[in-house]
């Protein structure tokens, strides 16, 4: 179908975007980034905002750069632009592998990292990666910037800590040049969204796991850390046995009432899959630890 009518404004700077949001505060307003979540919802008639503020072309929101110990990613950086930057894989390997699996070729050419995180689709590939990489989401509003840890950013289906007058401007990932990352995903055969996706970033030193963070999407109504897995692996040697033990604890502490259950998979099956895909993600980490510098 076709979108309902709306007013369209293109912002050329962050401050202009914030001003526009202020001007249209009384109306139902949506920010338009790549549009690959919003436009399908509008075309299906599910979403009918009065005003769209297009921030896709805001120059200052594009680009990936290393700033000291931080990889800083402009919110409107497309997936494909992110993948194309060497520093992405080097400093945020887990995020890099997750981004490679978002959508398809065309979606990756248009969709943006900031748009994805702000939309907070629980079945998207990035919430888990944001958690696994310990990302900080920078949101900007009339009162300036706010920095929100990924751990505090997602709190429900399509629900985040972004205020109505704010936008995501940047994602900051602590550089993890020594770490390896992996993302194992069971895509829905129809939509390609994650029925379950597990993202791991770990540092393995001499066979021992020194740091590990594991995030999952698709399982719960928002991205979650798999703390049982982290707990099991921290300080252990990474091998078949520890991976199996960690995978067994994948769904530990997850609130089953808030688990996703739909046509694609029941909550019960997701609980099973989160273990399987945790194992697969960890096996890839193990592989990559054994043979570093394997390039895509």
């Amino acid at each position: 179908m076709f979108p309902d009518e709306f007013d369209y404004h293109e912002a050329t700077s962050v401050s202009e975007a914030i001003d526009l949001m202020g001007e249209h505060a009384g109306a139902e307003t949506e920010l338009l980034a790549g549009g690959h979540s919003l436009l399908p919802a509008m075309k299906s008639g599910l979403s009918s905002p009065d005003v769209l503020i297009d921030i896709g072309e805001v120059e200052e929101l594009h680009g990936v750069e290393v700033d000291g110990d931080t990889l800083s990613i402009g919110a409107m950086t497309t997936y494909s632009d992110f993948i194309a930057e060497d520093v992405s894989e080097e400093h945020a390997p887990a995020l890099y592998h997750a981004v490679r699996q978002v959508g398809d070729t065309q979606v990756r050419n248009r969709g943006t990292l900031g748009g994805n995180l702000a939309h907070a689709d629980p079945a998207s590939d990035l919430p888990g990666a944001a958690l696994a990489t310990d990302a900080t989401i920078v949101v900007t509003g009339p009162d300036g910037e706010r920095r929100v840890s990924a751990d505090d950013f997602f709190f429900g289906m399509y629900a985040t800590d972004i205020g109505p007058d704010e936008l995501v401007t940047r994602v900051e990932v602590p550089s993890a040049a020594d770490a390896v990352g992996a993302y194992a995903k069971k895509p829905s055969p129809s939509s390609g969204y994650a029925m379950v996706g597990v993202c791991v970033q770990a540092t393995v030193d001499g066979g021992t796991v020194t740091t590990v963070r594991v995030g999952a999407n698709g399982v719960m109504d928002h991205g979650v850390r798999l703390e049982g897995v982290e707990d099991e692996l921290a300080g252990e040697s990474l091998d078949e046995d520890s991976i199996a033990a960690a995978a067994d604890r994948a769904s530990e502490g997850l609130d089953t009432a808030m688990m996703m259950s739909d046509l694609q998979a029941s909550a019960e099956f997701r609980e099973q899959l989160v273990g399987t895909y945790t194992r697969r993600a960890l096996e890839r980490v193990l592989d990559r630890t054994a043979t570093p510098a394997a390039a895509d």
């Binding site: 299906s44 599910l46 629980p122 429900g156 289906m157 109504d221 009432a257 808030m258 996703m260 739909d262």
Partner: peptide, 17 residues
């Protein structure tokens, strides 16, 4: 109607919330 297709996926967690 329109939201029914979407409902399947979101109603449970949204209702819970």
């Amino acid at each position: 109607g329109k939201v029914a297709g979407m409902g399947q996926r979101v109603i449970n967690p949204v209702a819970n919330r």
